[in-house]
Write a protein that binds this DNA or RNA. Structure first.
Length: 477
RNA sequence: GGCCCCAUCGUCUAGCGGUCAGGACGUCGGCCUCUCACGCCGAAAACACGGGUUCGAUUCCCGUUGGGGUCACCA
């Protein structure tokens, strides 16, 4: 039997981080077993389902590189099939029409609340003959659930979970308007799609019992269930927007890499010994539901950043550069010249090891734009404001100007600057920091020698002269 | 509140009866060093509590406490 998993979000919002992890686990499990990973859009709630949400889910999965097998199934389009099953269940005596009015239901709810118990339908139409049906009222169809005994789920993550059938009431399968409820639709779709493993958030664990009853009533094979713990916010409460339960598009915009997000999500609630980093191949080979933790875990943005910076360092130029050019161009509001692109390409290794995110990389790349960063960072401005700094700039400029254009490289620049520092009786840092401020507009950057080498003699000298012109020395006392 | 689930450093976790309770992120020192990162070295930091079972419990059982989930003609 081939493994079939599915990711079944309702399109009422973006693809958030928890959903992304659920999708990842489903995808990994399917790939691990050479099976299929399907997407089902649960859009039966017409009021809340939107096309933008559907797009966000599909785009999000695509960005995360979790490709689905086959076309997505839209649950709403299968409404007739769901209704057909509901009626078959009535015919088989596993379900029955219920004519209880909204008012009666409200009374039942009030009554159970008064007793301090949860709401349970009292089954008043369960054994009524057809003749008792009031004229002109369309009934809802309810499951004739077992009243005694227990329903058991052997969950792949949670273990054996048992609930007394007396705890479960006769739930609605088909609404009075003929539309299916989620409980019915899920079961019918999972069965029809051949889903073998239902891997989802454990907020659905309670639903699994009710769904199992429908499977049993229909005589269908029960899929295996794996209810994975939810992701919580830093404060331990259910993850909300406030905590970073943003759409995956937001993480993309913050400059995170899909591989990093996948790796972070994989290690949230799952582990394989002490391993922290997994290639996609390793993740597929090693993923096992038995290693999924049963406790909820907290979302930690700092750790995500750390994982991302690891992937930033590992990434090759091909995955980093094109998008980086686009980000820089958006920042400066014009296309990059070939020279500028070449500088950023040459400077990439040093830049990427300093970047936690693509945004950091973009910001760092600005030193290679003609003229350098627009504004001088406060600390850099301070570095330039002393008379010593001005003489250091002058000494540096003189030393650099003496290097022939043909000999202009990092090694020659380093040698010239070290010599100049020695001649001036300065520690290299005293000479380098003002120069760094002049060249990069910052007190922190990749190697000064490398930056100057990449910038070339003309741009390098121009930036130093500009810094000299702009910074009137402040007298020191 | 009923039902269900969960419980190791601040966080993510390893552990599957006998360990100096390991790793990662973060934090704090230090090294490297033209700055910042990287890298390296080191430090502080956890078995929620109470009963059992056992020669021996972080590990098995029960309870307490705490946390979470769920209780619709929403999904």
């Amino acid at each position: 039997m081939t493994v079939v998993t599915r990711f079944a979000p309702s399109p009422t919002g973006f693809l958030h981080i928890g959903g992304a992890r659920t999708a990842l686990f489903n995808w990994l499990f399917a790939r691990r077993h050479g099976g299929e990973f399907k997407l089902r859009i649960e859009d039966t709630d017409r009021k809340r389902s939107t096309q933008p949400a559907i797009d966000a889910i599909i785009d999000g999965l695509k960005w995360l590189e979790l490709e689905c097998d086959g076309e997505p199934v839209f649950q709403f389009s299968r409404m007739e099939r769901h209704a057909e099953i509901a009626h078959a269940m009535v015919a088989a005596g596993h379900a029955y029409p219920c004519y209880a009015t909204t008012e009666e239901l409200a009374e039942m709810r009030a009554a159970s609340e008064a007793e301090g118990k949860r709401f349970q339908y009292d089954g008043r139409w369960r054994d009524q003959p057809q003749s008792a049906a009031p004229a002109g009222v369309r009934p809802a169809i309810r499951l004739k659930a077992p009243e005694t005994g227990q329903t058991v789920i052997d969950d792949l993550v949670q273990g054996r979970v048992t609930v007394e059938n007396a705890e479960l009431d006769d739930m609605v399968l088909l609404r009075a308007d003929g539309t299916p409820t989620y409980m019915l639709a899920v079961v019918v779709d999972d069965h029809d799609m051949g889903v073998t493993h239902v891997i989802r958030g454990d907020d659905h664990l309670n639903n699994a019992f009710r769904q199992a009853q429908v499977f049993h009533a229909m005589g269908w094979d029960l899929p295996a269930f794996a209810h994975i713990p939810l992701i919580h916010g830093a404060d331990g409460a259910k993850l909300s927007k406030r905590h970073g339960a943003l759409g995956v598009d937001a993480y993309r915009d913050m400059g995170f890499l899909p591989a990093a997000i996948r790796n972070y999500l994989l290690r949230l609630g799952w582990s394989h010994g002490d391993m922290e980093f997994f290639t996609t191949e390793e993740a597929i080979r090693l993923f096992d539901l038995a290693d999924v933790n049963r406790a909820p875990s907290r979302f930690d943005m700092i750790k995500l950043e750390s994982v991302n910076s690891h992937y930033m360092r590992e990434a090759d130029a091909e995955t980093l550069l094109p998008e980086n050019f686009a980000l820089v161009e958006a920042e400066i509001g014009r296309p990059l010249s070939e020279v500028e692109r070449q500088r950023m390409t040459d400077g990439l290794p040093s830049l990427q090891s300093r970047a936690k995110t693509r945004i950091d990389l973009k910001t760092g790349s600005l030193i290679y734009v003609d003229g350098g960063p627009k504004a001088l960072a406060p600390k850099a401005a301070a570095l330039l404001q002393t008379a010593e700094a001005q003489s250091a700039l002058e000494a540096g400029a003189t030393a650099l100007a003496a290097i022939g254009a043909a000999q202009w490289d990092a090694a020659a620049i380093e040698a010239a600057l070290r010599d100049a520092a020695e001649a001036e009786g300065l520690k290299l840092g005293k000479l380098a920091q003002p120069l760094r401020a002049a060249l990069t507009g910052s007190d922190a950057s990749p190697s000064l020698f490398e930056v100057a080498a990449i910038l070339g003699p003309v741009e390098t000298l121009a930036r130093i002269r500009k810094a000299q012109a702009q910074q009137a020395p402040v007298p020191s006392y």
